[in-house]
Simulated assay, not measured.
Amino acid sequence: MQPKSGANETAITEFILLGLVETPELWPVIFVLFLFAYLVTVGGNLSILAAILVEPKLHTPMYFFLGNLSVLDVGCINVTIPSMLGRLLSDRHSLPYGAYLTQLFFFHLLVGVNCFLLTAMAYDRFLAICQPLTYSTRMNQTVQMILVAVSWACAFTNALTHTVAISTLNFCGPNVINHFYCDLPQLFQLSCSSTQLNELLLFAVGFIMAGTPVALIATSYAYVASAVLRIHSSQGKKKAFSTCGSHLTVVAIFYGSGIFNYMRLGSAKLSDKDKVVGVFNTVINPMLNPIIYSLRNPDVQGALWKMLMGRWSLA
């Protein structure tokens, strides 16, 4: 798919990504840092996933969703960072138009699934703490699979909508993007045609993709907080807040960086702050998730330790 152009305009066939820094002397440092972050993220998330698969104690709905979250984190960082590292090695910073749209689609697909999956995890905590007697029937395997399938379907629709909408815009120059991966705000700045409808679409769909999940998560945890405060055992309160605290930390980081990134489309020029937020979206969030869940969760810690010592259960 090639970008359209007017009669007297030259269609852009590729974009030039300037990367995180424009100083060539710093590129080796950036390469080493991001390669390390990439390896830590992939290794950490795959370790969490492996621990969930091999430890029978973790075969519960909460860890089913956590395993899916680990898969998404690995996918998200693979969409953006390897291509950036490749450009640093080859000293070639251009990206074909089709490759840009492909990266854009998969990035929004995986981030969108993440939005709904975090909501499903909040619903799981609500049922487990507020309605424990019916938890096993309301959160059975069928319900879990339906929640994940709906998350993928909604995210796919969102990603496809934005990709098709952006492909209708004209790009006739310049083609230099002050960023290190492909996203909508950067393309809006370069379009020769009006992006008003695209920006309205992003706000409208963003309200559904972010606003609705945030409202549902907040509602779920309002009920959870009320139920936890009624627990008389201090040990019970500590355990409930521990599992919920990990999830709320991930939610705060994920939605905080996302809202900053997409609610600033009216700004005249995208700055280096957007690169910092981009690092959070593509690297920090996926890298922190396994650390947050493993540090605050003794069950995950125990399963990881058993894996490291080669003593996992085959039951």
Results as ranks from 00 to 15, higher is better:
Y293M: 14
T80N: 14
V279D: 10
S193W: 09
P56G: 02
T212E: 04
G245H: 02
S234V: 07
I259M: 03
Q301M: 03
T219L: 14
V148L: 15
V276I: 15
A37L: 05
I146C: 01
F65M: 08
L288T: 06
H93R: 14
L110S: 09
N198H: 12
V251A: 05
G278I: 08
F106C: 07
V224N: 00
T13Q: 13
A218I: 11
A165G: 01
S5E: 06
I231F: 03
A120V: 08
F180W: 15
L18E: 11
G19Q: 03
N198L: 12
S267F: 07
H93N: 15
S313V: 09
I208K: 04
T23H: 02
L46Q: 07
V150T: 07
P96G: 12
L89Y: 11
T157R: 05
L314V: 15
G6F: 01
L295W: 14
V224L: 01
A7D: 09
C154E: 10
M307A: 04
Q301K: 06
T212R: 04
L101F: 15
G67Q: 07
T219A: 10
V79T: 10
N68Q: 11
G245C: 08
I177H: 02
L197M: 13
P286F: 07
A215L: 14
Q235D: 14
E199A: 07
N8S: 12
T23P: 00
G173I: 12
N45A: 04
D183W: 03
N285D: 10
R125S: 10
T282I: 13
W27T: 06
G266P: 05
C244R: 00
T157I: 14
P3I: 04
V214W: 11
L35V: 04
Q301R: 13
Q144D: 01
N68D: 04
I48N: 01
E25M: 09
D272A: 06
M84H: 14
R138T: 13
F31M: 06
G86H: 12
P56V: 05
E9N: 04
T102I: 07
T13V: 09
T282V: 15
T80C: 13
G211L: 09
R138V: 12
G43A: 03
K237F: 03
A204T: 14
K57T: 07
F34V: 00
V32C: 13
V276F: 14
P82F: 10
V300R: 00
T249A: 15
G236F: 03
Y97K: 04
A240D: 03
L270T: 13
I16W: 09
V224P: 00
C182P: 08
R230L: 12
T195P: 03
V276K: 05
N45Y: 06
V279Q: 08
L190Y: 11
T212K: 03
D124Q: 11
S226L: 11
S267H: 12
H93D: 12
V71H: 08
N285M: 13
P298A: 01
D73I: 01
